[in-house]
Design a protein around this nucleic acid. Sequence first.
RNA 1: GGUACCUUGGCCGAGUGGCUAGGCACCGGUCUGCAAAACCGAUUACGGCGGUUCGAAUCCGCCAGGUACCUCCA
Length: 490
Amino acid sequence: MKQQLAIYNTLSKKKEIFKSITPGFAGMYVCGPTVYGHAHLGHSRPAITFDLVYRYLMHIGYKVRYVRNITDVGHLVADADEGEDKIGQKAKVEQVEPMEIVQIYTNSYRRNMAQLNVLPPSIEPTATGHIIEQIEMVKTILEKGMAYEVDGSVYFDVEKYAQTNNYGKLSGRKLEDMLSSTRELEGQDEKRSSVDFAIWKKAKPEHIMRWPSPWSDGFPGWHTECVAMSTKYLGTRFDIHGGGMDLLFPHHEAEIAQSCAALGHDSVNYWMHNNMITINGQKMGKSLGNFITLDEFFTGEHPLLEKPYSPMTIRFFILQAHYRSTLDFSNEALQAAEKGLERLLKATASIDKIEASAQSTVNITSLQKACYDAMNDDLNSPIAIANLFDGVRIINSLIDGKEQINSTDLNTLKALFNTFVFDVFGLQAEESNSANNDVLGKVVDLLLNLRMDAKANKDWATSDKIRNELTALGFEIKDKKDGFEWELKG
RNA sequence: GGUACCUUGGCCGAGUGGCUAGGCACCGGUCUGCAAAACCGAUUACGGCGGUUCGAAUCCGCCAGGUACCUCCA
């Protein structure tokens, strides 16, 4: 069943059989968030995508070290504000310490991830916690002659690097194209070439987040942190590096350049990139101002949202598309996901009601194989889910007595659903708030028993009144041959 | 302007040469006192034009529309 996993490597632009450096172990680094705002729907895509990778690798037997960083310093703001970083700017606006901003949004991010049932990574390093490592990396790159210092700032010398290395091999760009597309950028006078990037930036006097270094009091460039931290915790060669497609260039290209310059070789074997979530066909992003935060999804408090959507609905919505495809947000699509998820979870929960027969009229083995085949084909979760829905139909037919299953197949079916629904896809049943309240449950049972009596007396008015009122309160009433079932919905 | 990608039925979304994706919605049927749930069945597709092929949603060309990256970004 657990045959070979193939994953699409952005570097080679094709699917490759995954082979870890150390048999039985896998190292994975994923670019985490910059904590200067609440996480939005877009952030959930890589988190869930690589949570899926993490979970599936563990399921097929790997011991995985998963490193996902928190960027809490160093991104230059887009509009020419001359090197003040995003965290620093936000701090001044809100009149608090930069590290307070970092703490608030880091906490918020972790809370949202827990709600989405995204497993915490093995190590969650922060950029500010690894300034020394980054300074060491800058020193090494300078020693190798691939960087130069100008007035306290250090820049990576892309043109020199490109003489002996392929700068652009990940993103498919050509250096001459980049050089010819002249873009006048502010504050770039120090750079020898427009394609160079800062690996250490001298801080302006008003800049709060700053650290001493051999070159100036300043802060590290963004591209440096991921190289310093990934190689520190995963080694100078590791298996998987993930992130959003929007990070392909320049971020990941620059990572490769720095690691090749500092170490003399690539450090990543498999580059994986998730695609974007779009809203009205356009990328959902902080800089575009068209994003909806995860908290807003969970509460429904946003003009574009018709209703609240649970974390599991969001998770399932994302898993229903392949990670390398764009996924378009809409209320209709989310509500479809919500209902589909409910059907899947209900069927999963009802497997225990199935009783084994002597014979099987259903083919569970082929179902199981289809699920693994899909996942082994570059984590094709939508196909795997489609197969699970075939399983849902089988489960419901078994419960209706329209199909039969032997005990071996039944055990396989149970294991398959438990494995895929809960372990691999990380879905979980919504907590049905007060449904576990014993007293309430007994009252509902009492009412429904009264309704049974009314039905026996053909008192349809009373019977329907009880059902309709309970339905209006959010209960779902299911009539069975000899009784009833009910549940309280979200 | 440069580079890459995308365009599938009412909506979302798989699928890389022949074989039903799947979900949601809708319609018909079974079940039900009537419903709901569940099951069964039906319907609606591959942006346009041309080419390759016995055969193309799938390969090639052109056109139209859209998106992403090139600047912070998941």
